[in-house]
Structure formats: C-alpha cells, structure tokens
Amino acid sequence: MDQFIHQVLAGLATGGIYASVALALVMIYQATHLVNFAQGELAMFSTYIAWALINAGLPYWGAFFLTVGFSFVLGVVIERVIIRPVENFPALAVVVVFIALLVILNSVTGWIYSFTIKSFPSPFPEQTLFGNKYMSSHEIGAIGVTLVLLLLLYAFFRYTPLGLAMRAAAQNPESSRLVGIRVGWMLALGWGLAAAIGSVAGMMVAPIVFLDPNMMGGVLLYAFAAALLGGIDSPGGAVFGGFLVGVLENVLGAFVIGNELKLAVALVLIIGVLTVRPSGFFGKVHVTRV
C-alpha cells in the first residue's frame, strides 16, 4: 500500500511536468491548430542554458528566472523569424518546419554541450520534507512550482487585458484585428509563453531524468498524450490530462507492465483517445462541413 501511495504521488510530480508541457502544446494549438513537435527540444535547450548559468556560478533561482526570461525571448524570436514566414503554408509544411526545428535544436545542443549525460541540480533540499516517507523534496517542490506556474497563467489569461487579447486572437483573428489587436504579435507572445513554460518543465524534470539532449523525448510524448486526453484545445483539460498521465504511467510502470514498457502507455493513450474520443475529456467536438 505504501508503495502504491508512493507511486501515485511521484506520478503527480512528473504529471505536473507533463501538464506544463501539454499546456504549452495547447497554447500553440489553439492559435495555429498545429502541434509544435519542437516544444520538448526547446525546453531541453532552455534547460542546458540553465545548466550553463549555474555552472558559471549563478545561484539556482537566479539561473532559473534568467532561463525563463531567455526562453520567452527565444520563443518570440523563433516565431517571428522561422514560423511567421511559413504560417500560411499548408499544415504539413509547417509541421516539417517544427520537426526540422526539433532536429536542429537537438543536434546543436549535442554539438555545444556534447551528448554525455549530465546531472542537473534541484533547488530543493536532499532530505525529505516534513518527515514524510512518500515523496522526495524535489517531487514536492516540482509540484509546488508547477501549481504556481499554472495559477499565474490562469490569472494572466483570465484577468489581464493582454491575456484576453491573446485568447481573442487565437480564436478569431479577423475580429481581433477589427478591435485593434496585433494578431501576429499575440502569436509570437504565445510562442514566448509556451517556451517559458517549457523551460520550467525542463528544469523541474532534469534532476529526475538527468540532462541530455534527448531528455524531453519521452516527456513530449506523455505531454502529447495528456493534451489529447484532456482535449487538445482545452488548457484545463491539458493540465488534468498531464496529472492523470503522470499517475497512470507511474502506477502501471511499477505494478503492471514494468518500467521498460512505460512509454508504451503514452502511445496506447494517444491511439486510444484518437480512435475512441478524439476531442478528449474536455475538448470541443468539431464538426466540419464539407
């Protein structure tokens, strides 16, 4: 029983990370109706920046916030420079650009920092918090960081004029222009925010999976499963899906199918959702007239 509780709680910790990446995917999806396959590699690249900053002697939280800021700018620049010129191309062409971005980020990181696995520090203490025997302090800390991030994002989109404008631009670009919203910039901001969210996820998962250029491959797959499960156009659904996938993955991995086959959970979920209920738990059912 203890073992079970432990796996569920540890699943919540990684689930929060999937939830963040899933949320980043959903944000781009809402605006473009495309899944940004490079989201994971962007987060990985950001995590290397954090690693370099920490190695250069910056305190952890200094490096953390600098990395978040840098990632935001990087996301904006990528949208303006790489995505914008192809935004009206057919979906498949844009997806190819995403995949190219994925491959380039992966190999550039490997080239700069080498492909050897590195350890990445956790900002949370070694010994467990509150004397609990179920969760490491990093797991508790990661959940806390994720929840703060999600709350901030919720408040931003719900209560600020800029957040409202970003939602409007994603849903209805033409009407948005008619009220004066600079739709192109809202998209770029969306990329910036998504990259910033991804960087937090990367820094939280790196102490668990270690730092290497391929560290986000599995995370992206789980996040994609989470986004689909919750409904690819529903931010709340993506968060819910993230936590659910984290717990499922951990519990099934520990007690049912073994750790080696864990990634298969994501694939089964993806295929299952796509065939049984493509709109997920919370997504809108879209009917396209032909």
Partner: peptide, 21 residues
C-alpha cells in the same frame, strides 16, 4: 462587420472589453 464577428467562446462582457482594447 457583416456576420457580427462575435468572439463566440468569450463572455459577453469580454467581447465588450475587447472593443475598448
């Protein structure tokens, strides 16, 4: 606009506030 241009997923008040963006 022709066709009203409603932001259908936003609330009525959010639609109005967007007008003053």
């Amino acid at each position: 606009p022709d066709g009203r241009g409603t932001f259908v997923n936003l609330s009525t008040e959010e639609n109005l506030r967007l007008g003053a963006y």
